[in-house]
Amino acid sequence: MIPIASIEQAATRLMAKAAIEIPEDYLGGIKAMAERESGDLSAFVLQAMLENYEAAKEDRRAMCADTGLPRWFVKIGNEARIEGGPVALEAALRRATAAATYEVPLRPNRVHPLWRTDHNNNVGINAPEIEFSYEPDGDWVELTTVHKGGLFGTDYRMLFPGDGIEGIKRFFLDTLIAFGKRGLACQPAIVGVGLGGSKDTAMSLGKQAACLRVVGDRNPDPKIAALELELQALGNSIGMGAMGFVGSSMVVDCHVEVGYTHTGGLPMSVHTFCLSSRRACARVSDDGGIEERTDPRWFTPYRRREGVEWPVQAERSRQSG
């Protein structure tokens, strides 16, 4: 049985870690971009950001004061038993979010959309978002928090099969350029692209592709992996860098995720994670042990399964039959 106190403890730590410590994979990506950047102002911006990541770690303060909309992605192993069940888990994540908002401190960004009521703790109706995913065999729960800015850099469009790959490239460029001007998208960043599914699935997949995959990770489908690299190169060829100044630093990495979609459609979303790409992850074991890491490992082979049965289950039913 996974102790609920361990979950809350891990969640509270993750909130601070995400806000303060830039993930290693992303830091490596930004350093590599800074090496290549030839635009003076864009290079100055990247250098200032690298100094800022250091300052954040040294001072234990958030790297960006717009601490975004803190949210949770939870992966539960099939054999996991959580003390108090899923309701207790959700309560623990809400408590950790509120506590970290005061303790780090984070900016209390969350307000009621109409009345602008602010509880000063980043908790409210449908906030923080908690998304669940499952994994065969594990007896653990994995928590990932993402703090992503919430205003610019994301767009959705219903494309059609006739728009094809050229249409995908065009909408990708449109989104990067529209929000890249003046640096509203806080580029360079990890860019996620969601293709297919229902409209809301396309949005979720793109968000998860941007926020839950690390720099250097490639989609297991070789053609999609090639598209990821092509889109990354395309984004970096716009001629725009950090803050929209002349340069080459737009896309630290590009991740594409797909979902089976309506036969007539090709819904697409583009999400730009921040220059302060904030995510932190931990696995909480059955014995209450907490193991922190920066790779959420959200898109597993199980998560991307294509057939009716998951192979392990199919194997089992064949054996029992």
Partner: peptide
């Protein structure tokens, strides 16, 4: 004047 980045939150906090 524009902030840089955006943003250098920790440097400005200092």
């Amino acid at each position: 004047w524009t902030t840089v980045g955006y943003g250098t939150g920790a440097l400005l906090g200092r």
